Computed example of a mutant assay.
Amino acid sequence: MGSEFQGHNLVYSVVIAEALVVLHGLQFALDLSFSNVILESDSRLVVNNIQKSSEDYSESRPFIWDVKNLARKFQRCRFQFIAREGNGAAHVMAIEGMRTEGDSFWVEDAPLKALEVADSDRRSGRPP
């Protein structure tokens, strides 16, 4: 339905970067007025930290807290881990985003390479 790329040059932790991706993804979905969201991430640690009900003492704690609060604004919001190999289009979109200057937003559209990879995934039976 849509995707975005926002550069964060000062983030040196992969876990914090992944948590920021989830946070920005939720905000993007909220901005597009989605009410039911399934957010997939290739960071098992971030997804686990979001899903657990016990106190989170990880370095991504402030971002996970924001994710949980933002998730309450949706009618339904589910988080799930998906291996990078399971979503080639998302990886291509991230690479495309890194090539551009500034932030990029795609609504009901995507770079041609990402569309090709998603179509290839669909034809081979892998999730888009």
Rank of each mutant, 00 (worst) to 15 (best):
G102K: 02
Q27C: 08
L23N: 04
I16P: 00
V15W: 02
E18H: 02
I64M: 02
M1F: 10
L10K: 13
F34S: 12
F81A: 01
V107K: 07
L39T: 11
A114H: 05
S124W: 07
V117H: 00
Q6E: 11
Q6C: 11
L10I: 09
P111C: 07
S120N: 12
D103E: 12
I82Y: 00
A110E: 07
P111I: 07
V117A: 04
P127Y: 12
D42G: 03
K68E: 02
V11S: 03
P127S: 15
R126L: 14
R99N: 15
G2K: 04
V15N: 03
E40W: 00
S53W: 03
L112A: 13
V117N: 02
L30S: 13
R123V: 12
E59T: 13
L23A: 05
V37L: 10
L115H: 06
P62H: 05
F81V: 05
M98L: 14
G125V: 02
Y57H: 13
L10D: 15
D103N: 15
E55W: 06
L45F: 04
Q51P: 05
V107I: 15
Q6N: 09
R78G: 05
L32Y: 04
R72H: 11
D121H: 07
H24P: 02
S53E: 15
R72G: 09
D66E: 14
A71I: 00
Y12F: 13
K52C: 08
A118L: 13
D42F: 01
V46K: 00
G102N: 02
E59K: 12
A94H: 01
S60N: 04
A94M: 01
G25I: 00
A118C: 12
G86F: 11
I50W: 01
R61W: 06
S104I: 09
K68V: 04
I38K: 09
M98T: 15
G88V: 09
I38E: 10
A83F: 08
Q6M: 10
M98R: 13
V47L: 04
D31G: 11
S124P: 05
Q75Y: 05
S60I: 06
I50G: 03
L26A: 05
G7F: 13
D56V: 08
F105L: 08
N48W: 05
A89H: 08
I50S: 03
I16R: 05
S120P: 04
F105H: 05
A71Q: 00
R72P: 03
F28S: 09
S53G: 10
H91R: 03
G86N: 10
L10R: 11
F34D: 10
S104L: 07
V14T: 12
L20N: 01
F5S: 13
D121Q: 10
A29W: 01
P62D: 04
S104A: 13
P127R: 14
I38C: 08
S54G: 09
A89S: 15
M1N: 11
E55C: 09
D66P: 02
N36H: 14
S58W: 02
T100N: 15
E40M: 10
I50Y: 00
I50N: 03
A71C: 04
S43P: 03
F34H: 15
V37A: 00
V67Q: 02
